[in-house]
Structure formats: C-alpha cells, structure tokens
C-alpha cells in the first residue's frame, strides 16, 4: 500500500514537473507546479513528516504560488509561440543551455554513483521528525545561525523589493 502510494505520488510529481516546462500557457504551468508541490507533500507524509508536508503546502503551494498567479494574472502574459524559443534567445544561448544540461546530467550520475544506492536504504537509527517540538528545538538551538541568517536575507530582499517598487517623488 505504502509502495503503491509512493509510486503514485512520485509519478504525479515527476510528470507534473515535466509538464510545467512544456506548457505554452503560464497559467497552466503555475497550476501544474502546485500539483507537483502537492505530490511532494504527499511524499513527506509517507516519510512520516506531516509537519514538513503541511508547511510545504502552506508556504510553497499556498503563499508563493499565489504570488506567481498574481503576477501571471496582472501582467496577462501572452501564450508563448512554439517557433519563438530559438528565435528569442538565439542559437548560441541554445547551445550553452544544451551544454549546461548535459553537464548537470553527468554531475547527477557521478554524484549518485559515488554515494551508491545503499545510502538510500532505510537507516534503522534514523528518527522520524514528526514531532513539531523536536523541529522547533533543533531550529532554535543547533541551526539558530542559519535560521537567523535566512531571516536577515529575506529582510534584505524585502527592502530591496520596496526600493525597486517605490515611485520617485
């Protein structure tokens, strides 16, 4: 049952993610990305991490994607034309992109072969992170520096956005 659910969620996540890139209509891309995030949340639930799953939905599927949707709706982005891609970014950029994606593929294969498949096997010592209290304690003790640094980073981004958006008087 669990295996079946895993493959179902994984399939949805992968197919939806691939389709995100393939859409002409940005609105469909946004919806498919939300579907993919939803499937990821399902995987987190299977991993016994309901808190991570719910935050995934609230933050990514709920908050961030609504902003995406707003941008798409307000700018009324037109459909992308099929012939436009190569013409828009130029043949040289296309070649660079192809080289980069091949490099990424090689990197992933190399990394996975180094780690080995055994690494993904269930570790009996691994503890489940279903307890919100445990996550909170870890976040505010062991990872407190990363936590605070991230919040400053986000604050900087916010101030930047306000400065960019501000009208000159």
């Amino acid at each position: 049952m669990e295996v079946f659910a895993f493959y179902a969620f994984a399939l949805i996540a992968v197919v939806a993610s691939v389709l995100v890139v393939g859409q002409r209509n940005p609105m469909y891309s946004v919806m498919l990305l939300i579907t993919s995030f939803g499937a990821l949340a399902g995987l987190y639930v299977l991993l016994d991490a309901p808190f991570t799953a719910v935050t995934q939905i609230i933050i990514y599927a709920g908050a961030i994607m609504v902003l995406f949707l707003f941008v798409v709706m307000l700018l009324n982005v037109p459909r992308e034309e099929p012939a436009g891609l190569a013409a828009a970014i130029g043949p040289r950029s296309l070649k660079v992109g192809a080289v980069l994606s091949v490099l990424l593929g090689v990197e992933i294969v190399w990394a996975l072969s180094r780690v080995g498949l055994a690494w993904f096997a269930q570790d009996p010592a691994a503890t489940s992170v279903s307890s919100v209290a445990l996550i909170g304690t870890a976040l505010f003790t062991r990872h407190v520096f990363a936590f605070e640094a991230t919040s400053i980073l986000i604050l900087v981004a916010m101030i930047g956005a306000v400065v960019v958006a501000r009208k000159e008087r």
């Binding site: 309901p50 808190f51 719910v54 609230i58 599927a61 709920g62 908050a63 609504v66 709706m73 919100v132």
Partner: peptide, 19 residues
Amino acid sequence: NVAVLVIFAIASMGVYGIV
C-alpha cells in the same frame, strides 16, 4: 497531530478556486 496547520493549509488552497 498537525490538525491546526492542515486547516490553515487547506484554507490557503481555497484561494485557487476563486482565482
């Protein structure tokens, strides 16, 4: 065990229907 957050998450999904 994260019921309150589930409600919050589903409420944020409701926006999509309207949008």
